[in-house]
Amino acid sequence: METMTPDVLVAVDEIIERHRETPGPSIPMLQALQETFGYVAPEFLQRIAAATGIPASDLFSIVTFYAQFRLEPLGRHHIQVCHGTACHLAGAERITEALEYATGTKCGCTSDDREFTIEKVACVGCCSLAPVVSVDEEVHGRLTSDDVSALVKELRKQGSEMTP
């Protein structure tokens, strides 16, 4: 968890200030915070509430309503499995399972070693490449279960090479 150091608070306040005059400011503010910190810490909601008068409960209801917001930080690799219709027909569920076995974590969670976060996303719009997985924002298409197991192995290998 991000600790609320004075530096973090200054950055948070700066973002709040930047969006204060935007009509309907709460969503752009929360998006900017997530963009900067990778997630929305509960403390951020308190901070916005104190600065703008928008009740923290309203902010929490927004954060939990929209799929984009995360209340916890991501793992080192962010894996998004597309579950659009074309990907579903092409076996997205089998791809998800293969990823779960390879990473040792459930879809929607971050692995204990904080290496991988697996998420299900509605559609990344690359239907002609189905089934599709996005790893750290790079889209990989036409995958098999075997390919994703290999992909995870490769990411682990990169990780261990970087930290000798």
């Binding site: 309907g24 709460s26 969503i27 309203d58 927004i62 309503f65 929209y66 799929a67």
Partner: peptide
Amino acid sequence: IREGAGAFVCGEETALLMSIEGKRG
């Protein structure tokens, strides 16, 4: 530009407007 935060229902026009206004869609 307003970036939609990921809610299918916001394609419905009144929900979309709520979202631009900074509320749940």
